[in-house]
Computed example of a mutant assay.
Amino acid sequence: MPLDVPPHAALIQVDGLTQDYPGHRALDGVGFAVPAGSITALVGPNGAGKTTLMRCLAALDPPFAGRVRVAGLEVSEAPRAVHRVTGFLQDIFGLYDGLTVEQGLWHAAAARAVPTRDIPERIAWAADAVGLADRFKQKAGSLSRGLRQRLAIAQTMVHRPRVLLLDEPASGLDPESRADLAALFRRLSRDLGTTLVVSSHILAELEDYSTHMLILREGRVVRHAALDASTGTPSRTAAVRLVLRLAAPCPDLATMLEGMSEVRDVDVWADGETVRLSLEDGHDPARRAALLRALVARDVAVCGFDLDRRNLQDVYLDHVRPAATARPTPGKGHP
């Protein structure tokens, strides 16, 4: 049954979160809100504070300063209650190797206060969801690396938490299992209203199912945005990003474009033949066609004109590279 949370309501609310370790500030004034039922890609360089943030959300590490609320619960005041509504899979996890898959799931469900009468149905559901229904009587210690990963995920979600926090959940899984996992995440979000925060260094994988992106760098949030379902790039309600390719540089093009009221954020690359811009109401093909006609009428040698289909990695690199890093100049035929 879907959660009784209004659509797009903030199920996770973080304000001014600061977390210190001896001689190191892992999180520095972090603030953001995660909508209910969303799937947030948590990304950033090594040491950015991603795991620390997840541990704070899971009420495992009390914040040094700031406020964290999960499903309306203050993590500092009600950590046990937060544990009951969250599931947290760490990058490095442990299993009871002497227990069978069934026993491990039963233990996980009981430890998370699932009523005894409901446990058989819950463990059957979790095992089936991750493809372990045929391994019920097999001991965890005899499972392959990928199957152990699946079991760990099943144990994390067996109590059907409102929030799932997953650190590198696809580690050790083969391509088919990764695709199945992405489908599972989409089902949890769609059918149960589960809110997921998933950390991974494989951005193409996150792009398959994420609805939002949260980028951390040096303990601070540098980007938090909804993603366009079709392109994986930050969504825009009134403007779209376009990329123009020119047969030859046009020295006055930037000035020309900036003089058009519907055009903004003009970015001419160093080669002079690649231009990116935002077009108001550019979701309407007629608006894009009108812009193209105007450019051709002014003798601009346009040889390419399309939506700027940048992927999650493009957006990520834009925000984690140092500001002083120069944009690479694309060669001819650059995609």
Rank of each mutant, 00 (worst) to 15 (best):
A71P: 02
E74I: 00
D128T: 11
G94V: 00
A71Q: 12
D118Q: 03
R117S: 01
Q103N: 00
R135D: 01
L151V: 08
G98D: 14
F88R: 04
R145S: 01
V101A: 10
M157Y: 12
Q155I: 09
V158R: 00
L105N: 14
L173G: 07
A124L: 09
T156K: 04
H107F: 15
D134S: 00
L89R: 01
G146N: 00
R135E: 14
L99T: 02
H159K: 15
E77R: 13
V158C: 06
A124T: 14
L165T: 10
A108V: 09
R148L: 00
A124D: 12
V163I: 11
E74M: 08
P169I: 02
V163T: 02
S144D: 00
R135T: 04
I119Y: 04
R162Q: 15
A78S: 13
I119W: 02
A78V: 12
W106K: 07
T116H: 05
S144V: 01
G87S: 05
G104M: 15
I153K: 06
R80Y: 07
A71Y: 14
W125D: 15
V82L: 07
F93G: 06
A111L: 11
F93S: 10
V85N: 05
V101K: 02
L164V: 15
D118K: 09
Q103P: 09
L165A: 12
A152C: 06
G172W: 05
A129T: 09
I123H: 06
V82S: 12
V75A: 07
L132D: 08
G172L: 09
L151C: 09
V101P: 06
R112I: 03
S171A: 10
G141R: 05
T100Y: 09
K137E: 04
